[in-house]
Simulated assay, not measured.
Amino acid sequence: MLEHGGRLRLAAQQFGIELNQWLDLSTGIAPYPWPLPTISVGAWNRLPELDDGLEAAARDYYGVQALLPVAGSQAAIQVLPRLRGESRVGIVAPAYAEHAQAWRREGHRLQEISEGSVHRALERLDVLVVVNPGNPTGRRIETELLLSWQAQLAARGGWLVVDEAFIDCTPELSLAAHSPLPGLIVLRSFGKFFGLAGMRLGFVLAEQALLDRLDEQLGPWAVAGPTREVARAALLDVVQQEYQRQRLQADGLRLAVLLSQYGLPPAGGTSLFQLVLHERPPELHEFLARRGILVRLITAPPGLRFGLPGDEAGWARLEQALKEYRS
């Protein structure tokens, strides 16, 4: 099993700092609490039902006619490789490592490639996986380029899988509106933008026939009743969404400026995280951890990924640690 951000209990044990004393910047999840609705008793004591309005709310939010709720986009990442026979799969790297692991686990022939080499590799591929914006780089790939890749793959029955986990603050860059195209599969995370990762919810946008195959593999009741109820309310709350988007965009810029002020200019990022390349990433990672600040250690490219503090105390604490590091 791959390591991920958010392993706060392990860090607390490793560095001997109480769990509640940490500033966790390791996950790329919105740090602000979303206003939660009251969850009905029925959501807890009845099996989930599909006519509760979640799918309708999600279709409106993403602007699509067909989608499938899943238990986090991670569930789709793991199951999609089972829907194809042995295939030649390219992944634009660096990328979220679970993609490569899932395709490799199912016996597909995997090739990690750079964005610049896609045009040369595409004729040899059956599937291309792209994370857009990139994780951990924040790199955006233009819609026109992605659609040209989709067209070339679809012409011979191939797939373009686009993981848009960090795109909610820039929805105009999403391929959601194009998801009915053959062979295009768009993955959307719910928990990152809404700050509700513990609910384990994501959505797959694609042709209905492919969604039906994926649904069959996942089985009934893939998303819990309380999750469905909270998510429906959040997806309908347009006012809170706009506030969330503006706040994340402002704080993403604030983080980039703060890091730059202390000699750590980001090499890329999104509204939810900033990537800092560094000569000795483990050294800086440990320096911050010994002060109760957890960031994500990145190996390719070597650096650190910083998420957002959730309050002014967190911002002040991060700035103080950066001051100490530069002194």
Rank of each mutant, 00 (worst) to 15 (best):
Y61W: 14
Y62H: 08
V64N: 00
L67N: 01
L68M: 09
V70T: 04
A71T: 05
G72Y: 05
Q74T: 13
A75E: 10
A75T: 03
A76R: 00
A76Y: 05
Q78F: 12
V79N: 03
V79M: 06
L80Q: 08
L80T: 08
L80A: 11
R82D: 14
L83N: 06
L83K: 02
R84Q: 08
E86L: 13
S87R: 08
R88D: 04
G90S: 14
V92L: 11
P94M: 10
E98N: 08
A100Y: 09
A100P: 07
Q101H: 08
A102P: 07
E106V: 12
G107Q: 03
R109F: 13
R109D: 12
R109H: 14
L110N: 04
L110E: 07
E112N: 10
I113Q: 03
E115R: 15
E115T: 04
G116R: 15
V118R: 03
V118T: 00
H119D: 12
R120C: 11
R124I: 07
V127S: 02
V129K: 02
V130F: 07
V131Q: 11
N132E: 04
N132D: 01
N132K: 00
N132C: 01
P133G: 01
G134N: 06
T137N: 02
G138E: 01
R139W: 05
R140P: 08
R140M: 13
